[in-house]
């Protein structure tokens, strides 16, 4: 997959940035424009960067570069109708997923516009925030927030579910104060009737 996709719309061209660095973006963009210089010259262009990999400074640099080289006006993506429609992440059945293959330690915060799978533990004091589901193949001791931007059907599943706090969409649950017994089987947390419930993961149930 290339690092950018360019699509034409009524009000200009949209450059969709997949996960890539600023350097990659700039090179790829220049290459594409060179291939059809006449077509691109003088057009209006938007950059759609959903993962927010491109900083504002880099954005300005690209803006200057495009204007001077090709006379392209770069517009900001603010107030875009399409973005608004996609406000609540809906890919909890099938959608963007990020994998982490290490222990997430205290003080680390992971956010992703999509689902998160951690192959490792999430220690106390760490925060995992996903717009979709969170799955932990290890022990979840920190704070997990699934469905961050409002999807109430998102869930949190872990091999050993011992979070200090769980959040799904706008609902918060905290662990009980008295020590409870460790569950020896994986558990799944989801929203039912506006409270977060935790169920043992029984393989047959989700078939």
């Amino acid at each position: 997959m290339s690092s950018i996709n360019i699509k034409g719309y009524r009000d200009g061209l949209k450059v969709y940035v997949n996960s890539c660095s600023y350097q990659q973006l700039r090179e790829e963009l220049a290459q594409r424009i060179m291939r059809a210089r006449d077509f691109f010259t003088g057009c209006r262009m938007y950059i759609v960067d959903e993962q927010k990999n491109i900083s504002l400074d880099c954005y300005r640099e690209i803006e200057n570069y495009l204007r001077e080289e090709f006379g392209i006006t770069l517009l900001y993506q603010k107030g875009d109708k399409e973005e608004k429609k996609e406000k609540i992440f809906s890919g909890i059945y099938e959608g963007r997923t990020k994998f982490f293959k290490n222990t997430i330690r205290s003080g680390q915060r992971i956010t992703y516009n999509g689902n998160i799978v951690v192959i490792g533990d999430i220690n106390s004091g760490a925060e995992i925030v996903a717009n979709g589901n969170i799955i932990v193949l290890g022990t979840l001791r920190g704070m997990a927030h699934a469905g961050y931007n409002g999807n109430k059907r998102a869930f949190v599943a872990a091999y050993i579910l011992q979070p200090s706090q769980l959040r799904i969409a706008d609902i918060i649950a905290r662990s009980p104060d008295e020590r409870t017994e460790k569950s020896s089987i994986p558990e799944v947390a989801r929203i039912k009737d506006d409270i977060i419930i935790i169920e043992p993961y029984l393989p047959n149930k989700y078939l």
Partner: peptide
């Protein structure tokens, strides 16, 4: 203070 699970 034993309040770690209440922090929002």
């Amino acid at each position: 203070l034993g309040l770690e699970n209440r922090i929002v």
